[in-house]
């Protein structure tokens, strides 16, 4: 089953300049009770986004009309904590296609890549420049090009390259799914099992 393809994206950004954004903040545990993958975006950052009376917190970035776009920019160590893939689903379901940070937690990064959500790791310096540019002008546009592995702040032309595993890059560009691949090598897996028994 193909996943969402990702080739390039030009968009404004939503800034979340907080470090160690853990997956309990991205999607609190009490919202993990669904048995499908849909609808988690409604509760993305629930406890930062809504107050006790379920009213939107006016100054939280997702409620602030001056920010829009499909790129979420987070502080260092984004996605730490629980392995819940619901965190990647929630961000993707909300409408983001890219998350930018100077450092990603391991499991979150894997989960994002498995769902067509591109984690772009940039330097501390580039991240600071990005936050500063969005702070000055919320309409600041950024281009992310997976083919050339570059992220560009269009206003200034500042650009940086980012790393991605070549296999995962190919999967995202073509919309390939890991499970289709694993099913295609079933004979190799069976041979491995037989080899271990002997």
């Amino acid at each position: 089953m193909p996943i969402d393809k990702f080739i390039s994206l030009r968009s404004a950004c939503v800034p979340l300049p907080v470090e160690n954004v853990d997956t309990d903040q991205i999607i609190p545990a009490r919202f993990l009770k669904a048995t499908t993958r849909d609808g988690f975006g409604d509760n993305l950052f629930r406890d930062w986004r809504y107050d006790k009376q379920n009213q939107p917190v006016a100054d939280f970035i997702l409620n602030d009309p001056k920010y829009s776009g499909r790129i979420l920019v987070g502080g260092k160590n984004f996605g730490s904590g629980s392995s819940r893939e619901h965190a990647a689903w929630a961000i993707h379901d909300f409408g983001f296609k890219v998350v930018v940070s100077s450092f990603f937690a391991d499991i979150f990064k894997n989960n994002a890549l498995n769902n067509g959500l591109l984690p772009v790791q940039v330097s501390e310096k580039f991240l600071a420049a990005l936050f500063s540019a969005i702070g000055k002008n919320p309409a600041t546009e950024v281009e992310v090009d997976l083919e050339t592995q570059t992220i560009t702040l269009l206003e200034t032309g500042d650009s940086e390259s980012f790393d991605i595993n070549p296999y995962k890059k190919k999967c995202l560009i073509n919309g390939y799914d890991d499970i289709d691949y694993l099913l295609s090598i079933k004979d190799k897996i069976e041979a491995f099992e037989t080899g271990r028994e002997n």
Binding site: N110, N111, N115, I179, L183, I189
Partner: peptide, 18 residues
């Protein structure tokens, strides 16, 4: 720990890719 996509990989093939 793994994500749910990987849980599906293990159910489908007894393997993960990392």
């Amino acid at each position: 720990g793994i994500g749910t996509s990987e849980v599906e990989m293990v159910l489908a093939s007894q393997c993960i890719m990392q």
